[in-house]
Design a protein around this nucleic acid. Structure first.
Length: 890
RNA sequence: GCGGACGUGGCGAAAUGGUAGACGCAGCAGACUUAAAAUCUGCUAUCCGAAAUGGGUGUGCGGGUUCGAGUCCCGCCGUCCGCACCA
């Protein structure tokens, strides 16, 4: 007797164990089948799997399982991006070793992932924090070092003086360290860099070939690389300042050179520094520029400020023309040459500056009507046009003038065409413990010496303390004291570790091949790479994906690989969101008025009275409430469950209102997180997986809802009822319509899954199921239901295996082939034709497919509704699209 | 500021320039049940209409191209994302 209900609790586990013991999803390097490498971005082991992971891995899993059924040898691995700061923070807060913390997290997340039945090849699992992985990374670093792609230079970093560490830009909030809250300083430190800029041109042009990437991501990378072409040239200083005789500038608009009215230097420019040495006012101004904030909002509102150095430069095309030299707060040292010439009429920023300091504003580009040299107004003209007031350039287009100036500068020797990139070399040094040690030894005599490969890995020491701030590797008693591998003299080990983005720049290679004695076997890697389909969040559109592209190219350039692009297709999936709620509160700032707070607390004044009397002493805050902390009545009005008790009469907090927030990405701070574990336990892996695929297109956000998961659960049960009904069916008879629908669904779902349009595949499956349920028992119906098990197998693999066994099939459905399609059944033999009068639908007729235009026109005109609608009007013409529609134009 | 994407029922969404709203959720009505759950059946863009295998309107707004526009073009409005003093 078969259970009337599908019980995922037992089934999920049973099949997960079967797949594991059979090694079903272990990829065979020696396979002769066509290959498919399906990869999802590996997770950081934060401790718990969240819904975003579940969605990401479900998508990859459906594709991987589907490709297996299609006859591919599939590589679908999973691992851990296991180095990084959260482990060190945990070490400081919880007094637990980062390694211990990380490995425990990996263990619990691994077992969570296993409950979802993902078809991962666990035999290839890796964690970047293990010496087997990072040791090989050190070997690659040395290869790049020897290949001339690694160098060391002084560089300004964000230094947190309290934590005594370098902070990434993202960790500096409003100029303060995100943990310590201390004012961040700019410090010069010697850092390791990778020469990504050597590949700028190639990384840019390579984007054109990435047809399988979202346009959006390609564009973001293009903007990030930021190629600008223009003219680089120098202005001679009227009076040389010691060794500085000229100022080098770069411009993408050299055509406007005759509209120049000043030259502006960055505060960090060498000439500025030199002048500041003799001029206290300038030194103060330069300091002020550096102190300026760098957040978007600050830049937006910051005033354009300058300091007149009193120096002048000579215009390169007119020896009598002198331009003043300013130091300006809007010129960046690390872009171009750190100096610009200002053309106020045709650059908004320059115009603002010129108006403020009363500098000339001369029109040199005209869009047709106005050609006067004097430029009126406060809006710069940046559009196309003809050059005016510019000597030999007059009358040329902007483009022609640019070329003319570049040619002239070249022939006269004062400038040349130049390409400038926004992309900077990649600084990979981190003053951190929990990362890959940089395998370099500093020797006073030999300089930086790579650790010999036979001494790798350079293993992180375990005995470290996090009690004092700073880098524990730096403080370790013995670790950094080593002998120089070259000369044997006492030397110092590099104590910086690598940016964790390095770890994720080659893990996909290590998944494909993981020998003990080298990072990977290029011959095996070649079999699998590039990754056929890469799936992950759009938040990695720039950094990770650019670094991985660079790393692959860099290895190719030193002969370690023979391909440049690691990811053939990329898919960026949307987030899992959930509704949010919050209470709007008014509360007394205690440090503002402790006295009033005391009075409220002792009941001398009611909190409402206090607020009415001193509203200015109150600040407004939002308190986020989790969805189960609120009650929503049938009118949609929201109330909080326990909030009022929490803020009783003796509290200074006044609850203004309870409101619905936006539907947002699940986050702890918004209190709208749904933990997958209890959901999986309650509904089973299949229902959770199915929900992740339903409704929303995969690139868009998926709103989590209780009703949605319930619906998926009901669908799984519906499948089960169908499966058990035909398990040993001997029904006979034909059902042509159902057979047709089956084949259409098999073909349609295959196409949708291939395109990752899971929501559409799900809709087609629903249509088939709906039709099956309405159909009378027949041989075709039995076939349809048995085929259905294979169609849904990639999505809901556990119930599919259960059905497969129920049908008495041998082996696993995971190894079964995708159902075959009878092409002749894909097209219907009857079609419904729309009949329009002047483009408006008036009737529909059902005719044999392939009916002639004449027949269709005749049938259309015979329609009573059409005649009524025509109402005797004269027919101008009739448009007939066979098998589609007839449109009668009157 | 620059660049990009998007805007369709109560909600998530479908729709090679060719019948807008497939499919799901929610809702309503009914069947089964002592009752509930589960399940099943039907309805469900909107307005007029008792209803119709009646008509009007309808894909953010305004124009255009076309026999025909959610889809293409132009201009607005709005939302979201990325970059941002980039010379």
């Amino acid at each position: 007797m078969t259970d009337q209900r599908f019980n995922p609790l037992a089934a999920d586990k049973r099949w997960q164990e079967r797949w594991a013991s059979a090694g079903t999803f272990e990829a065979d390097d020696a396979s002769s089948k066509p290959r498919s490498y399906v990869l999802e971005m590996f997770p950081y082991p934060s401790g718990r799997i969240h819904m975003g992971h579940v969605r990401n891995y479900t998508m990859g899993d459906v594709l991987a399982r589907f490709r297996r059924m299609q006859g591919f040898e599939v590589l679908h691995p999973m691992g851990w991006d296991a180095f990084g700061m959260p482990a060190e923070n945990a070490a400081m807060e919880k007094k637990v070793h980062p390694g211990e913390w990380t490995r425990a997290n990996i263990a619990s997340m691994r077992s969570q992932l296993k409950t979802l039945g993902f078809a991962f090849d666990w035999s290839r699992e890796l964690a970047t924090c293990e010496p087997e992985y990072y040791g090989q990374e050190q070997a690659l670093f040395i290869d790049l070092f020897e290949g001339g792609l690694v160098y060391r230079k002084e560089s300004a970093v964000n230094w947190d003086p309290v934590d005594m560490t370098v902070l990434a830009n993202e960790q500096v909030i409003d100029g303060k360290g995100w943990r310590s809250g201390a004012q961040v300083e700019k410090r010069k430190l010697s850092q390791w860099f990778l020469k990504i800029t050597d590949f700028a041109e190639d990384l840019l042009s390579g984007l054109d070939d990435l047809k399988g990437w979202p346009e959006k991501v390609r564009l973001m990378q293009e903007n990030w690389i930021g190629k600008s072409q223009g003219l680089q040239f120098h202005f001679q200083l009227a009076e040389a300042q010691d060794d500085i005789a000229s100022v080098e500038v770069f411009s993408t608009r050299p055509d406007t050179i005759f509209g120049a009215s000043f030259v502006a230097l960055s505060a960090d420019h060498p000439l500025t520094q030199k002048l500041a040495g003799r001029n206290d006012a300038l030194a103060a101004f330069a300091e002020e520029c550096k102190a300026g904030g760098t957040t978007a909002a600050e830049l937006e509102t910051m005033e354009k400020k300058g300091f007149d150095t009193g120096l002048t430069v000579t215009h390169p095309l007119d020896p009598d023309w002198q331009l003043p030299v300013y130091v300006a707060n809007f010129v960046l040292m690390d872009y171009g040459t750190g100096a610009v010439f200002g053309v106020p009429a045709h650059d908004q920023r320059d115009l603002d500056f010129a108006r403020k300091y009363d500098l000339p504003v001369k029109r040199v580009v005209s869009d047709g009507d106005e050609t006067a040299a004097e430029y009126i107004g406060d809006e710069a003209y940046t559009g196309p046009g003809k050059i005016v007031n510019s000597a030999f350039l007059d009358g040329m287009t902007v483009e022609a003038a640019q070329q003319a100036i570049i040619d002239r500068a070249g022939s006269e020797g004062w400038g040349k065409a130049q390409t400038t990139w926004r992309l900077r070399d990649w600084g990979v040094s981190r003053q951190r413990y929990w990362g890959t040690p940089i395998p370099i030894i500093h020797c006073d005599d030999c300089g930086p010496v790579p650790v010999p490969k036979d001494q790798l890995p350079v293993v992180l020491p375990e005995d470290i303390d996090f009690e004092t701030p700073g880098n524990p590797l730096e403080r370790h008693a013995t670790w950094k004291h080593v002998d120089c591998p070259k000369c044997g003299k006492a030397a110092r080990r590099e104590t910086d570790t690598l940016d964790t983005f390095v770890d994720s720049s080659w893990y996909f290679l290590r998944f494909a091949s993981q020998p003990d004695d080298r990072p990977f076997d290029p011959e095996v890697v070649k079999q699998w790479l590039p990754v056929t389909q890469y799936i992950g969040g759009v938040e990695h559109a720039i950094l990770h994906l650019l670094y991985a592209r660079f790393w692959t190219r860099a290895l190719a350039s030193i002969g370690k690989l023979d391909f440049a692009e690691p990811f053939e297709s990329l898919f960026t999936q949307g987030m899992v969101t959930h509704e949010t709620y919050f209470a709007r509160l008014k509360s007394l700032e205690s440090r503002h008025d402790a006295n009033l707070m005391n009075q409220i607390y002792h009941g001398e004044i009611s909190k409402n009275e206090a607020f009415n009397r001193y509203p200015e002493k109150y600040v407004s805050t939002r308190l986020w409430l989790s969805p189960d902390e609120v009650l929503i009545d049938s009118n949609g009005d929201i109330t909080a469950r326990n909030l009022a008790q929490q803020f009783d009469a003796s509290s200074d907090v006044i609850i203004e209102s309870i409101e619905r927030g936006r539907v947002e990405k699940m986050s702890k701070s918004k209190k709208n997180v749904v933990d997958p574990d209890p959901i999986i336990e309650q509904y089973g892996a299949d229902a959770v997986r199915f929900f992740m695929l339903s409704d929303s297109p995969p690139e868009r956000d998926l709103p989590w809802s209780e009703a949605g998961i319930e619906g998926s659960w009901r669908f799984v049960q519906r499948l089960w009822r169908l499966f058990i009904a035909v398990a040993d069916s001997e029904d006979t008879g034909e059902d042509k319509a159902l057979r047709r629908k089956l084949h259409q669904t098999v073909a349609g779902v295959a196409g949708d899954v291939e395109a990752l349009s899971f929501n559409k595949a799900v809709a087609k499956i629903f249509e088939l199921v709906n039709l099956i349920e309405k159909s009378q028992p027949s041989a075709d119906r039995t076939i349809a239901i048995k085929s259905l098990a294979r169609i849904v197998a990639p999505m809901v693999p556990h119930i599919a295996e259960e059905a497969w066994a129920l049908f008495g099939e041998s082996g696993l459905i995971a190894d079964a082939p995708w159902p075959e399609v009878d092409e002749s059944l894909l097209v219907d033999d009857e079609v419904t034709i729309a009949i329009q009068v002047r483009g408006k639908l008036r009737d529909t007729i059902t005719v044999a497919k392939g009916s002639s235009k004449e027949q269709l026109e005749e049938l259309a005109l015979a329609s009573e509704k059409v005649q009524r609608s025509l109402d005797g009007a004269e027919i101008m013409k009739v448009i007939v699209v066979p098998d589609r529609l007839v449109n009668i134009v009157i």
